[in-house]
Design a protein around this nucleic acid. Structure first.
Length: 669
DNA sequence: GAGTTTGAAACT
DNA sequence: CAGTTTCAAACTC
């Protein structure tokens, strides 16, 4: 397909190419179909000037800003779809262009008028994105321009959304349209859109696909290609959009936390958010737990709320956790849900959630079923005063609450200062002490197609385990517990980790089953309850690329660093870690003492084009960890995963680029 | 529920 | 950095 557009692949993003682009027959055709006029390339001098959300310390020009903006737009757009008079929007007052875009987005969503229009808008936005980046470096984050969607192509150092990449994206979309002028392949187009556009979470992406597909087939609303709705789908076609929207909004809600933390709390309430939504949103916050001042206060003043929040957090978390879903999944064959959950699971890379998910199904369920203390890990510390990493609660960044059986617990709001001080101390010793232990990398993609593809979990334990006797087959093993395979970083002996062995070999399902059987024979032959391994196995298998994962998911890379088990990598949608990002941010934004850490983390989540991926097959490679390695007393453990060039995927891929250095917490004060 | 095992965390 | 101790979760009975 030699189209005029193709020629300007590398030029797109420049005014000239843009002009050509808009002059193309296809573009004109699309334009003619849309009641909405494409927004002309209005230069955006300072896209962020009007933003008022809480920003990281000025010392860092965190990319998060851009994404924050992006996310805020995302939030605004979708939210406003149901609440046209969204206050948030009014907050973004200074940028008329953005508003125009937002309005377009709303129109696109609300009017449900035409697929063409939607796509057109996307295209125009993408093009604008590319343009803006070339026009104004400050606006390079394309988040400033993108409304519903964020452009995937992020490049580090303010080169986000490079014209070239954007152009490519647009070109690709065009390529799909071009050949089928009269009857564009919306599905593929949407698929591409999903692929090209990054969402703050896989859920969003999925939801987006669903929504788009629904639009694409107005009469066949139940078609949700990505979700793979089945005919047995009990839900009516009407429910689908709702579900999609729900997923979408869920992510949005989570995401909104990013911006509301300290100063923007008002935003949420202003947002016409329903009580439920608000609750949900809030629920997420606590999960970060950590020693969130807000929580502390809440616990003091309104304990009921706290409890509610806590439990809410858990519930919310579990909504996306395969663990909880597991049972559901076991009973239902609803692919849609499964898919959605898989997406969510992808997001749940961090150990805390992983624990809820993959690790200790038995215990966690027990805990989770405890009602009030659901969110609490119910530690049982006797001597550590819950001020050491031994304490799960502390390690997870949450206060101990009643369900805990700890003794002399200091991990409580009333000892907030102590907790924070201790935490800071620990972090000073090992900046990654509270970082997620399990890293879910883009390997899900990379591994696909090669030997490692058999590895169920596209993740690795940050430092690797050190198992000697458990053969990495018990939850003593952090890798196993996290549902990930052992890696070269592990110093385990006799590794038999079914999620992936240290030596790189992987146990296929059959072998896996055999080993499980053996294990079962060994200890508990006929336990009524599903044994841990079974559960983990199932959960993991659900996460396995049994069926090809949507490209958009494969392309996402998740980053490791966040500061607590419960915290996920920064928002950058690129990570697809919507929920946790919110959590993460919440915690740190609320905690001035560690805000630096946050900004650091944010900075560490820059994305780069695939070519760069080659340089760092695993995010962590170039991540602060590498730098921190020298800082950490446990340097021997905090080693960067080895590079495995063979694990590159052929497709486009974005990975997160780490930041150059990690601001020491000790320098904060 | 008590006791044992295990490996991470902390310490020297 | 290696070895040891402490600790609490995981596990077993």
């Amino acid at each position: 397909m030699d189209t005029p557009q193709k020629q300007s692949v590398t030029q797109i993003g420049t005014p000239i190419s843009k002009s050509k682009f808009e002059d193309s027959p296809v573009f004109n055709y699309i334009n003619s179909l849309s009641p909405i006029r494409p927004v002309k390339s209005i230069p955006i001098p300072h896209p962020f000037s009007s933003l008022n959300f809480t920003s990281p310390p000025s010392v860092f020009t965190s990319p998060h800003l851009t994404s924050s903006h992006k996310e805020s737009r995302f939030f605004k757009t979708h939210n406003s779809s149901s609440h046209p008079t969204n206050p948030v929007e009014s907050r973004d007052d200074s940028n008329s262009n953005e508003e125009v875009v937002a309005e377009e987005a709303e129109a696109t969503i609300d009017a449900s008028r035409g697929d063409e229009a939607s796509t057109e808008m996307e295209l125009s936005q993408i093009s604008k994105c590319g343009r803006s980046s070339s026009d104004d470096p400050v606006a390079s984050s394309c988040g400033g321009d993108t409304t519903v969607l964020s452009l995937v192509p992020y490049t580090p150092r303010g080169e986000n959304c490079s014209p070239e990449v954007a152009g490519i994206g647009m070109q690709k979309m065009y390529d799909n349209v071009q050949p089928k002028n009269q009857t564009p392949d919306w599905e593929s187009l949407i698929s591409d859109a999903s692929e090209l556009l990054i969402f703050n979470s896989p859920n969003d992406s999925e939801a987006f696909r669903c929504l788009m597909m629904q639009r694409a087939s107005t009469s066949e609303a139940r078609f949700c290609s990505g979700a793979g709705m089945t005919n047995n789908e009990p839900k009516s076609s009407d429910a689908i959009p709702y579900e999609a929207a729900s997923i979408l909004h869920r992510g949005v809600r989570r995401r909104c936390l990013d911006f509301e933390m300290p100063g923007n709390k008002q935003t949420m309430s202003e947002n016409n958010t329903t009580a439920n939504e608000l609750s949900s949103s809030r629920c997420v916050v606590p999960s970060i737990g950590l020693h969130l001042n807000a929580i502390a206060m809440s616990s003091k003043d309104c304990k009921t709320n706290v409890t509610h929040d806590y439990s809410g957090k858990i519930q919310v978390g579990l909504q996306g956790s395969s663990s909880t879903m597991q049972e559901t999944l076991d009973q239902t064959e609803n692919e849609t849900r499964e898919d959605a959950y898989q997406d969510l699971e992808d997001v749940l890379t961090e150990p805390a959630l992983a624990e809820l998910n993959l690790s200790s199904p038995k215990k966690k369920r027990l805990k989770l079923g405890a009602g009030e203390g659901e969110s609490c890990k119910r530690c049982n510390c006797k001597k550590s005063k819950c001020l050491k990493l031994y304490c799960e609660c502390f390690a997870a960044g949450v206060y101990c609450i009643e369900p805990c059986s700890c003794v002399d617990c200091f991990n409580k709001p009333i000892h907030e200062d102590t907790v924070l001080a201790t935490r800071k101390q620990i972090e000073s010793r090992n900046p990654l002490a509270f970082a997620p232990k399990v890293i879910r990398s883009s390997d899900s993609v990379q591994e696909t197609g090669d030997d490692a593809s058999k590895t169920p979990a596209s993740a690795r334990h940050k430092r690797g385990c050190n198992c000697k006797k458990s053969n990495c087959l018990k939850k003593y093993c952090e890798c196993y517990q996290g549902g990930v395979g052992c890696s070269i970083n592990c110093r385990c002996e006799g590794c038999k980790n079914k999620f992936g062995r240290k030596d790189g070999s992987c146990i296929d399902m059959e072998t896996e089953l055999e080993e499980e059987n053996e294990t079962s024979k060994k200890s508990r032959t006929a336990k009524p309850q599903q044994n841990t391994e079974d559960l983990v196995s199932k959960e993991t298998s659900s996460a396995l690329p049994m069926t090809p994962m949507p490209i958009y998911r494969q392309q996402l890379v998740q980053v490791p660093f966040s500061s607590s088990k419960n915290m996920m990598p920064p928002p950058q949608s690129l990570l697809g870690a919507g929920s946790s990002s919110g959590i993460y941010n919440s915690q740190y934004l609320r905690n001035p003492d560690i805000s630096m850490t946050q900004s650091w983390n944010e900075k560490s989540f820059e994305t780069v084009a695939e070519d760069r991926a080659e340089e760092m097959p695993e995010i962590i490679v170039h991540s602060p960890i590498a730098n921190i390695k020298t800082l950490s007393p446990n340097s021997k453990r905090v080693t960067p995963p080895h590079l495995d060039s063979s694990r590159r995927s052929g497709g486009r891929k974005l990975i997160l680029q780490s930041i150059p250095s990690f601001p020491s917490l000790t320098h904060q004060n």
